[in-house]
């Protein structure tokens, strides 16, 4: 794979709601260089016709949760951790609604 640019790092960070300094972005670019060398090790492995392994154990289950109300959080517990709350609602800066 190609070397990753600082701009890509910065735009990835923006998408993750993270603000990086120039220095930090450069540090990540450098980290990518090591990663890319390790990825060469991956590239050497032939994975033709190999399925992705998503779960440690892959036998499908047949378990569903029954549609029965089992647990509501009391409103005090819902709002206890709320950084900002008004009249039972969570509050954020006004979002321009789609």
């Amino acid at each position: 794979m190609e070397r990753i640019s600082k701009n890509i790092v910065l735009s990835l960070a923006k998408g993750l709601m993270l603000r990086l300094s120039d220095e930090e972005a450069e540090n990540i670019v450098a980290e990518f260089d090591t990663l890319l060398k390790q990825l060469d090790l991956l590239d050497q492995i032939d994975t033709t016709d190999v399925q992705e392994m998503i779960y440690p154990f892959e036998e499908p289950t047949d378990f569903f949760r029954e549609d029965i109300v089992d647990h509501v959080l009391p409103i005090e517990d819902v709002l206890y951790n709320a950084p900002l709350e008004e009249e039972g609602y969570f509050v954020i800066p006004k979002v321009v609604k789609d």
Partner: peptide, 27 residues
């Protein structure tokens, strides 16, 4: 804005090592 709130909170709330891993994960 919402984006600023989230960005401010997450930038301050995670140290650089974690931020780095998130960027690599996102990539």
């Amino acid at each position: 804005s919402l984006e600023e709130l989230m960005t401010n909170s997450r930038t301050k709330g995670f140290n650089f090592l974690l931020q780095k891993r998130f960027v690599i994960g996102s990539y």
